[in-house]
């Protein structure tokens, strides 16, 4: 208990003093996970929409695969991406291993199934004949899509939150493909592992508090957007 208290005090001190390394790690974390989530959104929302509305063979199979992907352990995804990007792997020549880009790729692959799954669920919860209705009312293709997205936005924002929450909090994939390089690919979760194994519990707790606060702020922001639209 005392360790936790000491850690809290140290955390407040580090944050108050504006510790440069801490700040850089926090910013880097938002940067990497933010881009990964953004890309996952761009890929996942249309895919989820297509899966929910499309009528094609293998759709159920695909939905099942997506639902499995939602539960994919990040560390397994990390391992797969590592094997792909490492020098002896098929994409080794790209020299991407142990870079932020590699982390974005891994996190993108972790977040996308979540975004697809949540989007599909949100779209499927809309009335089935809504697109036809919109068409009858004279809405063009793009316009009716935008209206649909608007109707489903509660679910879509949940999809984004789920995606961001998953990647910002995972440690396995970031550690494996990023390498936890100081000042380069060290993010909040991997920094916590490092500080813990070095016995710097106070710094580890400080980093944990920052991670929690950050996740809370991002989700609060998204929730505010989500709830304002509800009213």
């Amino acid at each position: 208990m005392e360790a936790l208290w000491e850690g809290l005090k140290e955390a407040v001190r580090l944050i108050a003093e504006g510790d440069v390394e801490l700040r850089d790690i926090a910013l880097r974390t938002i940067f990497v996970s933010g881009i990964a989530t953004l890309l996952a959104m761009m890929a996942g929302v249309p895919l989820g929409y297509g899966l929910a509305r499309g009528r094609f063979r293998g759709r159920t199979m695909l939905l099942g695969a997506v639902n499995t992907g939602m539960g994919m352990p990040p560390v397994v995804m990390g391992l797969i991406v590592w094997l792909m990007l490492v020098r002896s792997g098929p994409f080794g020549d790209l020299d991407l291993i142990y870079t932020k880009r590699a982390m974005v790729i891994a996190q993108f692959l972790i977040a996308t199934p979540l975004v697809v799954g949540f989007t599909a669920a949100a779209v499927q919860s809309l009335p089935r004949d809504l697109p036809d209705l919109l068409a009858v009312l004279g809405a063009g293709r793009l316009r009716s899509l935008l209206l649909l997205v608007r109707e489903a936005q509660l679910g879509l924002l949940a999809a984004i939150m789920a995606g961001f929450g998953a990647v910002v909090s995972e440690v396995g994939a970031s550690m494996t493909v990023g390498g936890n390089l100081q000042g380069n690919t060290r993010v909040l979760t991997t920094a916590i592992v490092t500080e813990t194994s070095r016995g710097n519990n106070d710094r580890a707790i400080a980093l944990g508090i920052i991670l929690l606060a950050m996740a809370f702020l991002v989700n609060l922001l998204l929730t505010m957007v989500q709830q304002r639209r509800v009213r």
């Binding site: 870079t99 932020k100 380069n184």
Partner: peptide, 18 residues
């Protein structure tokens, strides 16, 4: 995007030297 985040892969040195 990849180019954007590749740009600061090299921001290491000053920090580490510090």
């Amino acid at each position: 995007v990849a180019a954007a985040c590749g740009g600061d892969d090299d921001d290491t040195t000053p920090e580490a030297t510090g």
